[in-house]
Simulated scan of single mutants.
Amino acid sequence: MRTIRLAALTAAAAAAFTMSISTSSAAGMSHYGAKPIAPGAGSHAAPAAGADTLSLQTNGKTGVVSPTPKVYLVFWGSQWSKDPAKVAPDMQAMFKGLYGAKDTWGTILAQYCENAPKGSTTCPSTATFIKHPSASVLGGVWFDNGSAAPANATQAQIAAEAGKAAGHFGNKTQAPNLNAQYVVLSATGTHPDGFPNSGFCAWHDSTSSGYGKLAYTNLPYVPDLGAGACTTLTDGRMLSGIESTETHEYAETVTDFWPTDGWNNTANGEIGDECVNLDAYETLTTGKFDVQGLWSNKANACVTHG
C-alpha cells in the first residue's frame, strides 16, 4: 500500500508523481507517507466519524510503532560543506527540543500503541503505548562527509546509507533498532529518488540490514524549492517546509514503524498523510518550528496539539 496524496499537486506534478510510483513498483520497491510538495492552504475540516479513522494493521508486539523513539540524523555526503538555508543546525535544534511539556504536538502520538488486536481504533490498557519523551529524542548526528553522496541517489542507495548509519551509531542488533529511525538528509543541489520531479517532499520506509530491520527516511534539501514549498504557512520562512516535512515523516515512522504494520487508513494513508493541509508553529526550548497537523482518532480531526 502507498500512502501518497496526489490531489493537492498540480496536474503536471501529479502526473510525474504517478509515473515515479509506477516505476518504483516495477522495480519491486515502495515507499510510504510521501508528502506532496504543494499541500494546499487551509485546515482539514473534521469529517464524519470513521471517515479518516486510523486502525491497527497487525497485532504484532514489536516493529508496529516506536514506543520510545530515537532519531539519528545523517547528513550524507561532502556536499554538506554548503548549507545555505542552515538546515543542519535547524534539524538538530528541532529534535533536541521535541520533548516534555513544551512539545504539545508530540503528545498527539501517545494515544497510539502496539501489542493490541488487529483492527483496533483505540488502545486497550494492556497495550504498549507510545510514550511522550521526557528528554530529547535526538539519538545522534553524523556528517558522513568522507566522499560525495550520489547526485541522484536511488532508494536502494538511501537504504544502504541508513544501514551504514546504524553501524556508525553502534546499533548493531535488532533491539536498539526497534525504536531508532535514521533520517538520511541530502545536501543542496542533490536529487534523491527523483526529487523534486517526483512530486514528493520526503518519504519513509523500512529496509533489511545486517543489524536487523531498520526504519529510515529520505529527506531531500527542501529549501531548494523555495519558501512555501511543503508547508501551508505563507510567511516566507525558508526552513518551514523542511520542518513540516520532517515532522510529518517522524510522526508516521513513530506510528507506522515498519510500513504498513502500524496505524493506517486504507483510503487516506498514515497519520500525517491525512493532514497535509494543516501547519502550525510550535515553540520549544530550542526555537520555533513548523509542525504539520496529525490525525487524532481521539479528536476525530486533524490537530496540531494533543
Score class of each variant (00 low, 15 high):
185 L>D: 02
179 N>H: 08
201 C>W: 07
150 P>C: 05
185 L>F: 11
223 P>Q: 10
163 G>P: 07
145 N>I: 12
224 D>Y: 03
240 S>Q: 10
147 S>M: 06
229 A>D: 04
186 S>N: 13
226 G>N: 13
165 A>E: 00
152 N>K: 15
146 G>D: 07
178 L>C: 05
158 I>F: 00
210 G>E: 13
231 T>S: 10
160 A>H: 07
224 D>S: 13
228 G>K: 14
158 I>D: 02
163 G>Y: 01
225 L>Q: 14
152 N>H: 13
160 A>M: 04
195 F>R: 01
214 L>V: 07
138 L>A: 08
150 P>F: 00
178 L>R: 05
204 H>W: 10
171 N>I: 04
224 D>Q: 11
156 A>E: 05
152 N>W: 03
201 C>I: 10
142 W>Y: 13
215 A>H: 11
156 A>M: 06
233 L>R: 04
182 Y>P: 15
208 S>T: 15
150 P>T: 05
239 L>P: 04
197 N>A: 10
161 E>G: 06
229 A>K: 12
150 P>I: 01
167 G>W: 01
224 D>E: 09
156 A>H: 05
178 L>A: 09
214 L>M: 07
210 G>T: 15
235 D>I: 13
207 T>D: 04
177 N>V: 01
167 G>M: 05
220 P>V: 00
213 K>V: 15
227 A>G: 13
147 S>C: 08
143 F>N: 13
196 P>I: 00
162 A>I: 01
227 A>K: 14
205 D>I: 12
146 G>C: 09
232 T>Y: 03
193 D>S: 10
236 G>H: 13
206 S>W: 05
230 C>F: 04
225 L>N: 13
173 T>Y: 11
177 N>S: 06
182 Y>C: 11
193 D>Q: 08
141 V>Q: 05
185 L>Y: 09
199 G>A: 09
206 S>V: 11
145 N>F: 04
204 H>R: 15
149 A>T: 08
214 L>S: 08
211 Y>I: 03
187 A>F: 02
